[in-house]
Design a protein around this nucleic acid. Structure first.
Lengths: 133, 133
DNA sequence: TTTCATCTACGAAACAATTCGTAAGTTAAA
DNA sequence: TTTAACTTACGAATTGTTTCGTAGATGAAA
């Protein structure tokens, strides 16, 4: 029943820009991407066109340019990727994944606080719903 | 500087078997994999042969069969995959990844305890080293 | 209107991952 | 020794992803 046909790595980079910045032209996405990595303009364009056929994005034509929007939601997409990683690399143990994610880096005090607050939901499910959709 | 040329999904499934069960023949790995998914024997064989050329595994020939061992370590490999996911899908926020990993499922009391114990390392670095390499 | 920069469309190459058929070697049992 | 069951080697087809060149459309400025 789930949507989201699993974006490739390149597609994910584009989705991230659209999630972060909202609806954008190819030019805008491309400029954003090339801050980080090398890529030809038509490469970005082609990828976004393919994403359109996969319904990962939609677009509106205004004048000569097209403005693309993400059609898959960040939350769901990330969940799918996490689930996949959990399965294929951590044998399903979320705790192992969490510790691995935190283990190598030094989380900031704020991050730690966020995580602790988040964890509280699970052992004291009184007034608050542990659901954050 | 890092080793580990990033295993593909199929390679990861095989590595998991080797990590879990230790050195194994192609037959053993294959039987394990086909508990979960469909695959021809020579497909598994070929994949393991490719992994050999990539130095993801090594092998010992004994009689007619070959016994394969993982040459990359689970810890490092998982770290690399987590780092990648962190970058391409979570914009580098480990806290977000952690919450996403826990958010959709109900962690068991034991898992929660493990995670809390783990988190203590970070704000009270007295007797214990927060480093798990 | 002409020119120029910029856009989209799209074919196709380059690469990578997966899958499997077939051949040939090995072992053990008949 | 012949046969049967199994093994490895490996070429090659298939499928998916990424990359980019070229062509043609569009709009703004000269």
């Amino acid at each position: 029943m789930s949507r989201t046909p699993k974006p490739t790595e390149g597609e994910l980079e584009i989705l991230q820009v659209l999630w972060r910045n909202g609806p954008s032209t190819v030019r805008e996405v491309h400029d954003e991407l090339t801050k980080t990595k090398e890529a030809g303009y038509t490469t970005t364009l082609k990828l976004m066109q393919i994403m359109l056929t996969k319904r990962l994005v939609s677009r509106k034509e205004q004048g000569k340019v097209h403005t693309y929007s993400a059609e898959v939601n960040a939350q769901d997409t990330r969940q799918e990727l996490v689930d996949k990683l959990l399965e294929t690399a951590f044998g399903g143990s979320a705790a192992d994944l969490v510790m691995q994610a935190l283990g190598a880096r030094q989380p900031s005090a704020d991050e730690l606080a966020d995580i602790r607050r988040f964890l509280e939901q699970f052992d004291q499910p009184h007034s608050q719903e542990p659901n954050n959709d």
